[in-house]
C-alpha cells in the first residue's frame, strides 16, 4: 500500500488543524504534512487536502472571506480542479464557499447563537469518496461548533444540489436555519466536500462517539482501492 499523502492547511486563527491532523494520522497511519496559509504552494502528489475549522483571520469581513484569498488557496483550487479530494470542515466549509469551490454561503445562525453540541445527521449520499463507508440513509452523530453555519443558496442551486446527489449530510434537527437542513455538500465533480459538523472530533469512543471515523476511512479506502 502506497503511503497516504495528505496536507492540513493552517490559516491564522485556525483552531481545529491539530485535531484534523490527529484524525488523519490515526485513520491513515501517516501524519499529514502541515501547510501554512502563506506558503506559495502545496507539497507535490497529495492524495488529500483538509481545510480545518477555526476563525481564520478573526472572521474579518465574512467568515472564510480572507482565507479564501490567501496565497495557498490558489494551489488548493488548482489541485481541487485536478481532482484531488478536498475536505473543508466548519471554517473550512466557509472558505470553500467563499473561494467558489462550492456554491452557496454560510450565514449567521438563525438563532444568532453560537451552537456547540452533538447533532444527528442523515447520510444522504453514501456513494461519494468521502461517504462510501457509511450506509445510505444512516443516522450519525457528529459535533457542531459554529456561529455561521446557516447554509444559504438560491432555490435553483438547492434543487440542483439535491438533484445531483450533492447533499452529503442533512441535519435531522433544526440546528442553525440552513436551507433544507443542509449540513454538508459536494462539489460538482464529487472531490470537494464542505460540512459544518466536525468528523475529526468523533473518531474514537473517548470523544463520546466515533461516527466521524468512517469519513476518513472512506477517503483512505477510495485511494487504496483505486
Amino acid at each position: 500500500m502506497a503511503e497516504f499523502r495528505s496536507a492540513v492547511v493552517t490559516f491564522p486563527g485556525s483552531n481545529c488543524d491539530r485535531d484534523m491532523a490527529v484524525a488523519l494520522e490515526k485513520v491513515a497511519g501517516t501524519a499529514p504534512i502541515r501547510v501554512w496559509h502563506g506558503d506559495p504552494d502545496l507539497p507535490e502528489r497529495l492524495d488529500f487536502i483538509a481545510l480545518p475549522g477555526g476563525f481564520s483571520y478573526g472572521d474579518y469581513l465574512r467568515s472564510g472571506a480572507m482565507a479564501a484569498n490567501s496565497p495557498i488557496m490558489r494551489a488548493v483550487k488548482r489541485e481541487a480542479e485536478r481532482g484531488v479530494p478536498v475536505l473543508g470542515v466548519c471554517n473550512g466549509f466557509q472558505v470553500l464557499c467563499e473561494s467558489g469551490l462550492l456554491p452557496g454561503a454560510l450565514m449567521r445562525n438563525a438563532s444568532q447563537n453560537f451552537i456547540c453540541r452533538t447533532v444527528p445527521l442523515r447520510v444522504e449520499n453514501s456513494q461519494s469518496l468521502f461517504t462510501a463507508s457509511y450506509e445510505a440513509g444512516a443516522t450519525i452523530r457528529i459535533p457542531v461548533a459554529h456561529h455561521d453555519g446557516n447554509f444559504f443558496a438560491d432555490s435553483e442551486t438547492l434543487d440542483r444540489l439535491e438533484g445531483e446527489g450533492r447533499v452529503a449530510f442533512r441535519y435531522l434537527d433544526t440546528v442553525n436555519g440552513s436551507q433544507r437542513d443542509i449540513a454538508g455538500i459536494l462539489g460538482e465533480s464529487g472531490n470537494v466536500l464542505g460540512m459544518m459538523p466536525h468528523p475529526e472530533r468523533a473518531i474514537e469512543d473517548d470523544h463520546g462517539g466515533s461516527d466521524g471515523r468512517a469519513l476518513f476511512e472512506s477517503v483512505v479506502g477510495s485511494l487504496v482501492g483505486a
Partner: peptide
C-alpha cells in the same frame, strides 16, 4: 464582486 461583497447573499 471579488471580495467586498458575497454576491450569493
Amino acid at each position: 464582486r471579488k471580495l467586498l461583497a458575497n454576491m450569493v447573499i
